[in-house]
Amino acid sequence: MSPIRLIILVGAAIAAIAAAFLVRNMAQAPVVASAPEPVVETREVSQTRVLVAKRNLQIGDMITPEDLRWADWPESSVLNTYSTEAGDSDAMEKLAGSIVRIPIYEKEPIMDTKLVMKGDTGTMAALLTPGMRALAVEISVESATGGFILPNDHVDVILTYEVEGASSDEKLPITKTVLQNVRVLAIDQVYNTEEFGGASQIGSTATLEVTGDEAELIAYAERRGILSLSLRSWSDVGEAESRKARSDLLNAAGGGPSESGVVVYKNGQVDMPVGPRGR
């Protein structure tokens, strides 16, 4: 046998042995099982309908049924303070007229703890604009535009008083505008126009929204004479410059309260002192 042929035979034998080992190893390799398909379990979440805000509600806003709506809510997350359609279907009507005392955001459930309920003692404080005061003044049919002044109207406050004329026995009437563009918060104890049940209502007290300085001025003016309310048009309610006090209040000849030491305010600022220490 030639050497070349011997080399070929030996190489073939080695290749056969290698192939046998390879086949053996492949036969003994563990079979990898395919991962099972994930099982998606669907559970039905029990829901109920709760009363939520339809828009952002700010402090002092008066709630109407249009501000509220029923929304689906997970039953496991429903608190005792929520109003549910199943348990209180007329909640919208019950809450109408309530005042917001803590901001409520859109889609947030309505809770009584964030409201001043209609008729509660804290209603007037919730109605007030921050920084303002509520001051009650006596009115009559003649002094309140025949009863046509309603809550949320704006008025001018007018003072009528008498001064001495040429002789000590002669009295002359003087009329001055104390304040302009003042918001009416309530007539008597009614702060919502819907409570009147008509176009007009006679009251004996009007509650006005004023600053601290304006409250002092009106309180003095009420002691000085008779106050009347003049109804303003809605078209000029927003005029910023229209809210002011007359700087010449009670400063007519013979009528200045020189003995009182009163300070007159204009736009919330001291305008001029009237009295012994004033000009």
Rank of each mutant, 00 (worst) to 15 (best):
M1F: 10
P3S: 09
I4T: 09
I4H: 12
I4L: 06
R5Q: 14
I17A: 14
A20K: 13
F21D: 08
R24F: 08
M26V: 12
Q28E: 02
V32I: 12
S34Q: 15
A35D: 08
V40M: 12
V40T: 11
T42V: 12
R43W: 05
S46I: 12
Q47W: 05
T48R: 15
V50T: 11
V52A: 04
L57Q: 13
Q58N: 09
D61K: 14
T64N: 10
P65W: 06
R69Y: 09
W70A: 04
D72R: 14
D72M: 05
S77E: 06
V78K: 11
T84Q: 10
S89R: 13
A91T: 03
L95R: 05
A96Q: 04
G97V: 05
V100Y: 14
I104F: 00
E108P: 02
I110A: 07
M111P: 00
D112M: 00
T113H: 14
T113Q: 10
T113V: 06
K114S: 02
L115Q: 10
V116Q: 04
M117R: 15
T121W: 15
G122D: 08
R133T: 01
A134N: 03
G146I: 11
G147E: 12
G147K: 07
I149F: 08
L150E: 03
D153W: 05
H154T: 08
V157A: 04
V157C: 12
T160K: 13
A166F: 09
S168D: 10
S168C: 09
I174P: 02
T175M: 13
T177P: 01
L179I: 04
Q180D: 03
N181Y: 15
V182T: 09
V182Q: 09
R183Y: 05
I187F: 08
E195S: 13
G198D: 14
G198Q: 13
A199C: 10
S200D: 10
Q201S: 14
Q201K: 15
S204V: 13
A206G: 01
A206W: 12
E209I: 03
G212C: 03
E214K: 14
A215L: 09
E216G: 05
L217S: 02
L217I: 05
I218D: 02
G225E: 04
G225P: 01
I226P: 00
L227N: 02
S230C: 02
L231F: 00
D236A: 04
V237T: 05
G238I: 01
A240F: 03
S242A: 02
R246I: 01
S247Q: 08
D248T: 12
L249H: 05
L249W: 06
L250T: 00
N251F: 05
A252G: 11
A252S: 04
G254R: 15
P257K: 11
P257V: 11
S258N: 07
K266I: 00
K266T: 01
G268M: 06
Q269N: 02
R277D: 09
R279H: 02
